[in-house]
Structure formats: structure tokens, C-alpha cells
Design a protein around this nucleic acid. Sequence first.
DNA 1: TTCAGCATGTAATATGTTACATGATTAG
DNA 2: CTAATCATGTAACATATTACATGCTGAA
Lengths: 179, 179
Amino acid sequence: MALDHAILVSLTERAASGYDLARRFDASIGYFWPASHQQIYRVLARMQEAGWVESTVQEQDGRPDKKTYAITGAGRDELDRWAAQPSGREAIRSDFAVKLRGFRDRDAILRDTRARRADHVDRLAAYEASEARFYPDPASLEGQDLGAWLALRGGISTERRGIEWCDEILTALEGRGSR
Amino acid sequence: MALDHAILVSLTERAASGYDLARRFDASIGYFWPASHQQIYRVLARMQEAGWVESTVQEQDGRPDKKTYAITGAGRDELDRWAAQPSGREAIRSDFAVKLRGFRDRDAILRDTRARRADHVDRLAAYEASEARFYPDPASLEGQDLGAWLALRGGISTERRGIEWCDEILTALEGRGSR
DNA sequence: TTCAGCATGTAATATGTTACATGATTAG
DNA sequence: CTAATCATGTAACATATTACATGCTGAA
């Protein structure tokens, strides 16, 4: 049930339409909890049934109507209830680690590793740009801003260790010629 | 379709029953791709249909019959085909990061962070014990052993950065009193 | 005129989780 | 006698992915 809560968290930051949320989930909160627009619309409908969100329709000219969702009091209660529960260890599902472990085709692994490294570098740059822009003075942060900054710090360290791991793999494989 | 490949990789290391595989997925390969026995039995049945694995039944006295699965030539072909494809960025779904971002209840987050830190410490110890035991001389590794070691190295760096992140969170939250 | 963006969804399929089901042996 | 381990599954439900569906505006 955690996409529900990711959407609720996003709505506490600002009310939004399904479309807006889908875009947020393409970046920002989506880095920690990816979701497609199809999922989002379904969960919004379910949460509206449950009374955790409410929607208002805005007509727009030259644009399709827009349904803006806002979190309700019941939604905030649910968020608090969820936050008080211990969050279990999250599952890691890594195609790449499985592939490494099955090691047969050295070139395929090298190609994959280089591509992953480039991905990590890009995402790290994006995170660092966000940090510089939105959190220039971390020592002064409080409440939700402090939490968002700490989440971002987690993203930064994840990407850095990803780059280091790729480098370790490249060194080990390139240093050994073909198998 | 990646549980399929995780099982195939595990079977290249040694033929196994569904039960054996389920235990391997509780540790070792399961650290990179968790799966329950129910899933495993379902996928084994499907892969047998597809001809990627074959099974032989062994009768045992005082024990239920045991169906041992082995990978076939077609299974190896499928593994190679899969390994040659680029593996996309994997999705991270972190309840904890979402919770951080929604920051309302500081004590709940502190509790969660301390529990996560302890988890990371335990798992890191398990990985390091494996490394010392099975890979005392990494420079001499080749082929599948080299891959398995590199995957394990990934596990080790993941846990280390997990611990560091928890410490960063604890420092930030404890240093600030309640909000 | 073609593509990207805005805006909403449904439907089918695949995958993962939880609950149920059975039954023997061995260690405490 | 109770719980853990061995050994196999089915069934129901929840969640995620992929494909399909529609239609308007504005920029290249």
C-alpha cells in the first residue's frame, strides 16, 4: 500500500492533478518510488473512495478539464498512522547483480557496467544541482524540509557508491583480459 | 521475467529442488533478488513447459519425494540471450525515503533509522564473513567466481553506505532537539 | 504535418504477497 | 507434546507493467 503514501506525501507538499503527480513521479519523489500515470489514476480513485483525498474539477479553455486532488484530514491521519509503523527492510531486485553472478559474457558485462556508470553520473549531477539550489544552508533546515534534504542526501550517497562499484568492476574485468 | 533468470543462474551453480532454491533465495542470490517458495514453484513449472529446465524425481525414505531441477541447453541459451541485453536502471522503492520526505514524526523516524542501521550492520557482517571465507584471494578469481565476488562487493558497499546514511540522519535529527 | 505536451482513463497481462493445505521426521 | 525442518503445491488478492484509447494546442 505504499504508493498510496507516496502520493499522499506529495499532496502534502502541494495539491495536484493525476497528470501533475505523474510528472513528479518522473523525477523528485519518483526517484524513491517510481510509478506510472496508470497506477496513479487508479490509486487516486481508490483513495477518493476511502476519503483520503478530495478532488475539484477546473475547466480550462483549450485544454482538457483538470481534476485537482488535495489531501483530507483523514488522509493526514492515515499518513501519521503509516509513519508510526516501522518500515521493513526494502527488497533489492537487481538484474545487474544477478547477471554479474551468472558471469559468462565479459563484454556484455563491461558494456552494461559502463552504461550504468554513466547513468549514475547523470543522476548524481541532478541531485547535486538540486541540493545546491534548494538546500544551500542545510544547518538551518527544519521539519519537512529537513526530511526532504536527508532523503536527497540518501540519493546522493546511493549514486556515489554506484559509481564506485562500477569502477571496481571495470578495474577487475579490464585488468584481466578476456576470460 | 527476471526471477526466471535468477533461478537459471542459481541452477548453473548446482541442480536443485524448489525447496533448495527457496532456501538459496533466503540468502545468497536472494540478497539481489528475493523470492518466496510459492513464486519459485510457479516459475519452475513455467520454465519446464518452456524447456529451460528439466526435472527428475527422487524417492527418499522418511521424506517426501524430491524433484530436482537442472538447467537444459535451451535454458543456457536463454541465459546468454538475456545477458547480452542491456539491463535497465533498477527501480528503487523505499518506504523509508518516502517517510523521511513526509517528515512529521521525528521519534518514529529516529526509531526506524536505528533499526535500519542495525540491519545494515548485521548484513554487512554476513557479507564480510562470506568474503573472508569464500574469496580470500580475489586477485586469482576467474569466470563465474569473479562475477559472484563482484556481486558480493556490491552488497558490501551497499550496506556500508546504508550505515553512513543512517549516521547522517541520526546526527542531523539528534543534533536538533525535537522540531 | 508531425511531434511534444496537456489531460484523462480502461484492459490485459505479469508478478509478488498472503493465506491455505498436507503430512512425515527429528530435536528439545 | 511442541516446534522446526523437509517437501510439495493451490488459491486469492494486490500491485506493477504494457498496450490501447481519445482529443486538443502549439511549436518546428
